[in-house]
Amino acid sequence: MHGPLPDAHSVILRSHERAATSYHRSMADEEAPASKSAFNGRDLRKIYVTGETEVQALRGVDLDIAVGEVLVLLGPSGSGKSTLLNIIGGLDRATSGTLWYRDTELTALDDADLTRFRRANIGFIFQFYNLIPSLTARENVQLVTDIAADPMPAEEALERVGLAARMDHFPAQLSGGEQQRVAVARAIAKRPGVLLCDEPTGALDSGTGVRVLETLARANTELGTTLILITHNAGIAAMADRVFHFLDGRIASIVVNETRIAAAEIKW
């Protein structure tokens, strides 16, 4: 059970090394599009049982997500996109179906291994930042660098999101946008293979939101990180390679963007 994980991690490192030499993410696709699949899911189902009611959150989802891809999940509340994101990120497990991350079958991992998987590969960003209020920006990032295998220095992560000057501020001393950028820095500091963002701009005004999206896009291009975003904001979909539209626990349609626009150009 522990075997595949170091492997997965070495893949991330390689993707990182590669990213350091190649600025454009598209190169990665050209190199080995078929074998560089990040996630492969088949017939993923999730049923929540609360009391006497059963809720089918996912009703059979198939998906293939490539390494370095930017994916946006759109859809109304309760359509299953957050459930899928949580399963992909190892926070939750599918009731049935299989899900692979590279060479690892996530659906077969136990709780401790899922934790190791998250620790090694996944960066999360939520709508409400979820910073630890008792830790400064730097220390919040260090929470991750303390336990990651090959993290970047916390200071570097914060520089990447433009917060070099505010590293020793506590969350209460930062604006919403700054707090979310600390969350982004915390997510990218471990050089994750995948960044999972659930409504990352939901609590921000458009100007601040765009800045956050820019930092996410840079992580994608500079680190080769696969980026999966949940949003209610259709405008954001324009920065994705592909857009999954969710409805009633299924992927109702997939839109492939022929041309992606830069995060800076997004307006809402």
């Binding site: 926070l91 934790t115 998250r118 090694a120 630890i132 209020p133 929470l143 991750v144 336990i147 915390r186």
Partner: peptide, 16 residues
């Protein structure tokens, strides 16, 4: 609870 959940998401084990 909130902070502990955050730590779990960041990849901290239950014991940690």
């Amino acid at each position: 609870a909130h902070e502990l959940a955050t730590l779990r998401v960041l990849g901290y084990h239950k014991t940690e």
